[in-house]
Amino acid sequence: MRALRAVARRIGAGLLVLWVAATAAYLALLAAPGDTVDNIIGDGADTPDIRAEIIAQWGLDRPAVVQYVDYLVRLVNGDLGRSYLLQRPVSDVIGEQLLPTLALAVAAAGLGVLLALVIAVATAGNRRPWLRRLSSGTELLLVSTPSFLIGLLLLSVLSFRFRFFPVSGDQGAGALVLPAVTLALPIAGLLAQVLRDGLDRAIDQPFVLTARSRGVRERGVLLRHALRHALLPAVSLAGWVFGIVIGGTVIVEQVFGRPGLGQVILSAVANQDMPVVLAVVTLSAAGYVVVNTAADLAYLLVDPRLRRS
């Protein structure tokens, strides 16, 4: 019962954040320069009649509050508005390009987490000091290197020199490998640091001494005891990882010439196609909230101490 209340509270907090985020996005739209009507007309014909028609069609003559409520209602119903530039529903534009971006994001996040786990477990404790030094140096490099540089390096070595992978495009799984690795490396670098830190701290705890005094192997100590404790701080980074992955896809898609949301938002920004920009931004905020709430719930699952209050 108490656990249920804890779950409800976290979901409620997520919804609240979502609402504030949507409002912030709406305020950004109001702050956008230039006249909305001008933006919609773009290079098209500009007569007073057309202007009046646009104002009527988009409901721009209504009070700000009504427009805001209308915006929220449409948002809840999944209506993201119409693109000024393409004159099509934004949801269609995004829908077409969502899949390749999603594939890249999921592949990169999965690979990053997996790499981080392997590295952290292999280097935790003080068993192999040289390996530990090597891996923390590499992690620092990965975290500090712009993802486009990683991408270009991988491209110039693996595609141009050895021709292992296609240079660009979205044909087949082969084309996904390099972009996913590019994006996964910085994530792995940071998560590995956090996980290893957590493992090291856990290993210093008395309960690990107790476990060792039972005759448990070092691997058992790490996997059965320390890893759960190390996962807690890592799980709380889930939202942050989501942000990095989403931001990263924009850059990586550009580097590898992949289609996806990155291309959509870049061209929208260049043309000040605000509905599209806002839709992508709001969607990613929603994604962040979902991921973060899921992480909070996972926290409850891992740590029984939190289920109480």
Partner: peptide
């Protein structure tokens, strides 16, 4: 809560939004 909401926007996208404006 406002800060929570603000950090829900991935940094790069928030920057792009800013630049679009």
């Amino acid at each position: 809560r406002t800060l929570d909401a603000l950090s829900a926007f991935p940094m790069l996208l928030l920057a792009l939004l800013f630049i679009a404006i």
